[in-house]
């Protein structure tokens, strides 16, 4: 564990920028997001969960997969430097790990033949994640429902704790240990720092709301698939994609070609969501998820049933972004409570 006095943090980030392409929380107009760092002084270390989720660093809203001209296919060159993310919250770090199960290597097992997505892997595999422990979780935070906590380091390479006067860098993964071990010129964290870290973690835990038990939710959801409870839950949903696009774990996408057919153009991958009617529209014109409640149910089935069946985890980390942005206050926590309270 090393300690970086706050007045020297820019120096640390600048050193990081020599080898890494660094992303950190920043303000873009009225909103906050993770942006490439050009000047460490521009990082806003005080930003809580960014308005836009950091999934876009590794899985951009619109990503050019390749370009084509005539019959020729051209790979798109990107910044060759590996990505470092600074200031990622625990919920988001775990979100990236979940996405790695879908796109990357995290769910490779000898008995399956999962497709690995090269566009994800070329960015995520070599990346290093500096996560920030949350000293002041908000009322919309519910990471503790998923067995995590505000000072949890899962999904991070290095956990960063703000003790007031300094950032303490606590390596979590092998990659993190290697990086911290390679650094020179930084003092070791003191005993006092460790005491402060422990106190901060304790305070943060206390600030979290009560844990809601979700044992068996995947079977429960499946049993309720055709039940009227979804009419009640879905009644107020207006079926926009705000929740899905702001979500740190929603990852459905569409692939499209832009340009002239057979001539010049590019193939792009764009975020899509089950909330949109066109998502499941079939060529015949039939839509198996025709009504808004069907689409809403799909989103929650994916998060709390299908994903658990496929990858052993919930597809939600409790960041609370959707709770904040939903225009009709359809609170994901209430959906879970209603489902769990419902008799199949």
């Amino acid at each position: 564990m090393i300690r970086i006095e706050k007045e020297r943090i820019d120096e640390f980030i600048r050193a990081l920028m020599e080898t890494w392409s660094v992303y950190a929380p920043a303000r873009d107009g009225k909103n906050t997001l993770f942006a490439p760092v050009e000047d460490p002084a521009g990082i806003d270390h005080g930003i809580f969960n960014t308005d836009k989720s950091p999934k876009e660093i590794f899985f951009p809203h619109s990503e050019v997969l390749f370009e084509f001209e005539g019959g020729e296919i051209k790979k798109v060159e990107r910044d060759a430097r590996p990505i470092a993310v600074w200031g990622l919250r625990g919920c988001d770090a775990r979100s990236l790990r979940l996405l790695d199960k879908v796109f990357g290597s995290a769910w490779q097992k000898p008995d399956n033949d999962m497709f690995e997505d090269p566009y994800w892997k070329e960015k995520y595999d070599d990346s290093i994640i500096f996560g920030t422990a949350c000293n002041e979780p908000r009322s919309t935070c519910f990471c503790n429902w998923f067995g995590a906590g505000p000072h949890d380091g899962a999904g991070m390479d290095v956990k960063v704790v703000d003790t007031g006067e300094a950032f303490i860098l606590d390596p979590v993964s092998e990659k993190g240990k290697k990086y911290i071990g390679s650094l020179k010129g930084w003092a070791e964290a003191t005993k006092k720092d460790v005491t402060k870290m422990k106190a901060a973690a304790k305070e943060a835990d206390k600030a979290m709301g009560e844990v809601f038990g979700m044992d068996g939710i995947q079977e429960k959801m499946a049993d309720l698939f055709l039940k009227p409870v979804w009419n009640d839950i879905g009644a107020k949903c207006v079926n926009c994609g705000a929740c899905a696009f702001i979500c740190s774990t929603c990852h459905c996408f569409d692939v499209q070609d832009e340009g002239k057919k057979g001539k010049k153009g590019k193939r792009i991958r764009i975020w899509d969501t089950c909330m949109f009617p066109i998502f499941t529209m079939e060529a015949s014109g039939h839509n198996p998820r025709d009504m808004s409640k069907d689409r809403l149910r799909q989103r929650f089935m994916h998060k709390f049933s299908y994903f658990i069946n496929n990858y052993d985890e919930h597809l939600c980390t409790g960041c609370g972004r959707c709770v904040i942005v939903c225009p009709v206050n359809l609170d994901i926590r209430e959906v879970v409570r209603e489902v769990m309270a419902c008799e199949a």
């Binding site: 107009g29 207006v238 926009c240 705000a242 702001i246």
Partner: peptide, 16 residues
């Protein structure tokens, strides 16, 4: 342009 460049195409505006 400045306003709309922040748009994430979620269509919440349209749907409400």
């Amino acid at each position: 342009k400045q306003e709309y460049s922040a748009c994430i195409r979620c269509y919440a505006c349209r749907n409400v």
